[in-house]
């Protein structure tokens, strides 16, 4: 009934290609590498780099679900506590005579359950905000960890368990292998599948998503459960690397994770940002921390850097997202005025 032709071919333009935040992160990585290798001649040596990588990758697993959560305009600050609780459960079970393999499975289950509980509360009581729910469970989960182990530590794991934290697959750290595989998986999941598309939809306009038949509750439940599961995986690697665990492990991991996600270009207003950016940001922050370690900046000082980095990246991302806003606002007003 119409003669209008609507194009469905998007032309590739170099400008759009290079205007991606990810290039900025790659540039940052290059700068950090250059500075690091100038500070220490040993930095660009293979073992040095893999060593560095192994120390910061454990928490990076939580970045994957956190990206999804923040794209959906939610937040989860209980992930550090979830990791601690999963780790404690695993160690306690093993010390009580349960086979290590089953203890590991239990660890994963506990993590997933913690995440599921967060998601369940949010779905069941829609007027609750993720801030308050995960803040409560953040205290609760770590509190339970303390109830179980009090001020003791647990460890003495079988030798093979240390493989998670220290092992290599053909010269590449096992943790890095798993991270890369999962990263590819999650990048594809978020950018190429229907689930990913729906996550963006929910973050951009939750109401319209629901009216379009997107199962918002199911997705929320899934993503929060995933956050718990990934926190448990973090717990396994962390516990393996340290050889023992205490209730205060993974303290403030949520901060590092949120900082990585924010630097990765995921906007806190929802619906914007890519998984790849967050994956790159993991390495930017990781090597930055390592570099600061090289010039003997004490660990506690890193706190300042991470804190400020978080605020700066959120500001920059907000600015990037809202820069186009005036134009959008004008359109919106116009539409309103017609009505």
């Amino acid at each position: 009934m119409s003669t209008r032709i609507v194009s469905n071919i998007q032309k590739f333009t170099w400008k759009r290609f290079f205007l991606q935040w990810e290039w900025m992160l790659i540039a940052l990585l290059v700068i950090i590498f250059t500075i690091n290798s100038n500070i220490s001649p040993y930095f660009l040596n293979y073992t040095s780099i893999t060593d560095a990588t192994m120390t910061f990758l454990d928490k990076a697993f939580i970045v994957f679900p956190m990206v999804m959560i923040m794209i959906m305009r939610e937040i989860d600050i209980s992930v550090g506590s979830t990791a601690a609780l999963s780790s404690i459960v695993m160690a306690t079970l093993y010390n009580a005579g349960v086979p290590m393999v089953i203890a590991i499975v239990a660890c994963l289950l506990v993590g997933a359950l913690c995440g599921f509980f967060n998601g369940y509360l949010l779905v069941k009581y829609r007027e609750l905000s993720a801030v308050i729910v995960t803040l409560s469970t953040m205290i609760l989960y770590r509190g339970i960890a303390y109830m179980i182990l009090e001020d003791r530590s647990a460890g003495d794991f079988p030798d093979w368990f240390s493989y998670f934290g220290w092992g290599y697959v053909g010269g590449i750290p096992f943790i890095l292998c798993l991270f890369v595989v999962l990263a590819i998986g999650f990048v594809l999941l978020l950018q190429k599948t229907t689930i990913g598309r729906r996550i963006y939809a929910v973050g951009s306009n939750p109401k319209a998503s629901r009216f379009s038949g997107v199962k918002v509750d199911k997705i929320k439940l899934l993503v929060f459960t995933l956050a718990g599961l990934m926190a448990a995986i973090t717990a396994i690697f962390l516990t393996s690397r340290m050889g023992s665990t205490r209730p205060n492990v993974a303290n403030m991991y949520e901060l590092d994770v949120i900082a990585m996600v924010a630097l990765g270009g995921i906007s806190t207003v929802g619906g914007k940002g890519k998984m790849l950016g967050a994956v790159l940001a993991v390495f930017v922050i990781g090597y930055l921390q390592f570099g600061l370690g090289l010039i003997n900046i004490p660990a506690q000082m890193l706190l300042i850097v991470i804190g400020i980095l978080l605020i700066v990246s959120v500001t920059v991302t907000n600015f990037r997202v809202t820069r186009k806003a005036p134009q959008r606002k004008a359109k919106k007003n116009q539409a309103k005025k017609v009505s």
Binding site: T194, R197, A208, S209, F211, S212, G213, R328, K332, A335
Partner: peptide, 20 residues
């Protein structure tokens, strides 16, 4: 604007959302 479309999305993505 509130219940049907995702204004900051392309037309194509909007159209396909309920038929993914």
């Amino acid at each position: 604007q509130d219940q049907s479309l995702i204004l900051q999305w392309e037309i194509s993505r909007n159209i396909s959302l309920s038929a993914l």
